[in-house]
Design a protein around this nucleic acid. Structure first.
Length: 465
RNA sequence: GGCGUCGUAGCCAAGUGGUAAGGCACCGGUUUGCAAAACCGCUAUUCACCAGUUCGAGUCUGGUCGACGCCUCCA
């Protein structure tokens, strides 16, 4: 049985898809006004884990991730840089896809961009207007009137009457009737340059919430299985999506809402003013490997705040190295030996591994099971108790685990380096001549480059620290 | 004011009534030219604190203290 914690009910619920064997998954993607930061990727990695686990469990997943290429920030920055909105956002869409590849996230099946869905959004505004959920203001904006929608606040567990008009409310910016109403369509403002589309309500541009309703239903139908995002999206974004979608279609919208907690950097909230704001690119430049970052982000339960520290990245690299070392050792087995039944140990472990993940993606529990097995196997390897077929079983087990973790196998391996190879050869020459001080000198040099050596029977290999 | 989350070893962390998984780090041993990696062994009488329920509580109930999030466009 697979269970997920559903924000809608605040409980773990058994997962039952609408169509047996298939899952419609919508995840809130990036707003492309800058490089994505490590906190953004926490969300995308959680979604990647979810998707990979569902696939491993035999579901056929159809995954849509939106790209917000029109909002206050994209408009403002493109104007600042004196570029067209499209030209400006294209750059960050491209970098986003590069980052997705670096972190080995499974690409979504579609990445719809808000600006490509203006007609569908306007259709939805039309439906809402027809049903009496909207009003227009003098500047040509269209608002959703939440007092017309009975269940408003059901996801965030907020009572609309209790909502405080906080400091963040720009109350009369668009002349709305009540502070809590939200914009479906925003009338054109001069400050937004030529960013504007025609509509039955005059020129303007879509409100933020509308794109996700329009694009998710376009690809997944009015009623689909899972919608994910960061906890900050629960309110107002997802609450508003529910209101719009259910009001427009008259149907149920999403069955399971899954939200990930935020990431802290060295126990502090990540912010530019604190100077602890890291993009993936910056961390790679600092010398951290993609797999260590992936492991760091994936190995803490998604509903737990993740305290992102450099110690944790180093610890993650060690864990990854250990798994890779096990694979390397298994590949070296070429003689038959009598030992305990690796096959059974492995299949038992995989069973528990999947069972833990099926419990609301309990990754810590799953990794616990994995490492109990890893230790057991290492011990058998050291005692020469693993046969050729046992080794095969170890390798296939690691491959299965890596379908989810995606940190062991090749594509994100360290790039070959002629410099490193040359130094290793020089050191081995020195060792052959029993010139230990020279050999150690070269090893120290490599250490300074973040490279650790291991002299094995099969030759010298290297890893990242 | 409203809604909600969390507090388990030096650090990370599993554990939804039965006597504390796992990872990193540390220490001792095997191994190694020395290392590294791996192995063997050691590392929480205790789960923020207090009270209660129970044969039995990290797990349930009440309270206290502490950290944090959301309450209109931030993953």
């Amino acid at each position: 049985m697979i269970k997920f914690y559903n924000t809608k009910s605040r409980k773990r619920e058994e997962f039952i898809p609408i169509d047996e064997g298939k899952v419609g998954l919508y995840t809130c993607g990036p707003t492309v006004y800058d490089f994505a930061h490590i906190g953004n990727f926490r969300a995308y990695i959680f979604e990647d884990l979810l998707r990979r686990f569902l696939s491993l469990s035999g579901f056929e997943v159809y995954h849509i991730m939106n790209i917000t290429d029109i909002d206050d920030k994209t408009i403002r920055r493109s104007i600042e840089e004196n570029r067209s909105l499209q030209d400006f956002t294209d750059e960050y869409v491209k970098s986003f896809h590069e980052d997705v590849e670096t972190l080995r996230l499974l690409p979504a099946h579609e990445y719809p961009r808000a600006t490509e869905f203006i007609p569908q959004m306007l259709d939805m505004v039309g439906q809402l207007e027809e049903k009496g959920f909207t009003y227009t203001t003098q500047d040509g904006s269209v608002f959703f009137k939440i007092s017309e929608f009975d269940n408003y606040g059901s996801l965030a567990k907020l009572d609309p009457d209790q909502l405080r008009s906080g400091e963040r409310v720009e109350n009369d910016e668009y002349g709305k009737e009540e502070g809590r109403d939200f914009a479906l369509w925003k009338g054109h403002k001069d400050s937004e340059s030529n960013v504007s589309w025609e509509s039955p309500w005059g020129n303007g541009r879509p409100g933020w919430h509308l794109e996700c309703s329009a694009m998710s239903t376009h690809y997944l139908g009015n009623h689909f299985d899972i919608h994910c995002g960061g906890v900050d999206n629960i309110f107002p974004h997802h609450e508003n999506e529910i209101a719009q979608s259910c009001a427009a279609t008259g149907e149920e919208f999403v069955n399971y809402w899954l939200h990930n907690e935020h990431l802290l950097v060295e126990s502090q909230k990540m912010s530019k003013s604190e100077g602890n704001f890291y993009t993936l690119r910056q961390l790679l430049e600092m010398g951290y490997s993609p797999e260590s970052l992936r492991y760091t982000l994936i190995s803490t339960h998604y509903r737990q705040k993740l305290n992102f520290t450099f110690d944790k990245i180093k610890s993650s690299q060690k864990c990854v190295n250990k798994l890779r070392e096990l694979k390397r050792r298994a590949l070296l087995i070429d003689i038959d030996a009598e030992g305990r039944d690796v096959e059974k140990l492995s299949s038992d472990m995989l069973g528990k591994f999947q069972e833990k993940l099926g419990d609301d993606l309990n990754i810590s529990g799953a990794l616990g099971e994995l490492f109990v097995w890893v230790n057991d196997i290492f011990s058998q390897l050291d005692n020469n108790e693993v046969s050729v077929s046992g080794a095969g079983s170890i390798l296939s087990t690691l491959n299965t685990v890596d379908l989810v973790l995606c940190v062991i196998n090749d594509t994100c391996n360290d790039e070959p380096s002629e410099e490193i190879d040359a130094l290793i050869i020089a050191r081995n020459d020195a060792r052959a001549n029993r010139d230990w001080s020279k050999a150690d000198e070269i090893r120290d040099k490599l250490d300074a480059l973040g490279v650790v050596l291991e002299d094995t029977q099969g030759g010298t290999i290297w890893k990242r620290k």
